[in-house]
């Protein structure tokens, strides 16, 4: 199995780059022949990536969440997978390029530095922990996709305001659509993060003797959860629209990224495995 894992590890960055290029080409050329085919490229890449993750889990007897670089490959997968679902559900195809680039970056870093770890802490082999981490990563992927659509919304908004009718104007979907995609991605991200938090709160205290509700990562994640929750509420209840909601989701995204980095660097936590 190891040779297959190694081959797939080096094949995946190329597949993501190829898929990115197909999306890029289609974005630059209206009515390109890739308009329908690009989805197939993404599907094949995701399928091979899923096989890679499953083989890896089986071979090393733990879900690929034990190192940063294992997390990165899962993140590359979850981001593109979440986008793939969104594209299938909404049939809006003009924004994939800006999302798949994240998968390209994560997968390249992962492929370079990932190691074959046979010996890991016993707790990291637990399937519930795997579910907890993967749902959290899917949640953060949702927030990433929301942020990308938010940024695209702001660029298109500015272009229309300044009467700049170039490539962005021609190829992006409408502001209303971008805002909806942003909102739906936030909702999906929020649900998955909620799921992850619930699993964590129920199961983790028993699994970790040094578990604490004052854990910095737990507090930071709860704050993120609260921010996105307030954002959703303002949109649904107060009928906020446009820039305000978008900026709210972007602030949430930036804080989410910081919450992943800062507690790991500055605080000692039962959440730190590597």
């Amino acid at each position: 199995m190891l040779p297959i894992i190694h081959i797939l590890n080096y094949l995946l960055p190329f597949l993501y780059i190829l898929t990115f290029y197909v999306y890029y080409y289609d974005f630059m050329h209206e009515n390109s022949s890739f308009n329908n085919a690009k989805r197939i490229f993404l599907f094949v890449t995701l399928f091979i990536h899923l096989i890679y993750l499953l083989i890896r889990t089986a071979e090393f007897n733990h879900p690929p969440i034990t190192t940063k670089f294992e997390i990165f490959t899962v993140l590359a997968f979850t981001i593109s997978f979440s986008y793939f679902l969104l594209e299938l559900l909404t049939d809006i195809r003009g924004t994939g390029l800006f999302i798949i680039i994240f998968s390209v970056v994560f997968q390249i870093i992962s492929s370079f530095y990932i190691q074959d770890l046979l010996v890991v802490k016993e707790v990291l082999r637990n399937r519930l922990l795997g579910l907890h981490v993967i749902s959290a990563l899917l949640g953060y992927s949702g927030f990433t996709i929301a942020a990308v659509h938010g940024v695209l919304f702001l660029i298109l908004y500015k272009d229309i305001k300044l009467s700049k009718f170039g490539l962005i104007f021609n190829r992006l979907p409408s502001l209303e659509t971008l805002e909806k995609l942003n909102f739906y991605s936030v909702i999906i991200g929020f649900i998955l993060l909620t799921f992850s938090i619930i699993i964590g709160v129920i199961w983790l205290p028993g699994a970790f003797p040094d578990f604490s509700y004052y854990d910095p990562k737990l507090i930071a994640t709860s704050i993120i959860w609260l921010i996105f929750g307030i954002g959703i509420a303002t949109k649904v209840i107060a009928k906020w629209y446009g820039k305000k909601v978008i900026i709210f989701s972007l602030v949430g995204f930036v804080l989410a990224i910081l919450s992943l980095i800062i507690p790991n660097i500055f605080a000692k936590s039962f959440h730190s495995f590597y």
Binding site: L156, I160, F165, F169, L172, P173, S174, L175, E176, K180
Partner: peptide, 23 residues
């Protein structure tokens, strides 16, 4: 590309409106 894009004022206006609203 001969028939693509708006070439009248009123149609160009509609093209901008469609970049803001979907439905």
């Amino acid at each position: 590309e001969l028939g693509k894009g708006a070439v009248t004022v009123s149609y160009a206006a509609v093209q901008i409106i469609e970049k803001i609203f979907t439905s």
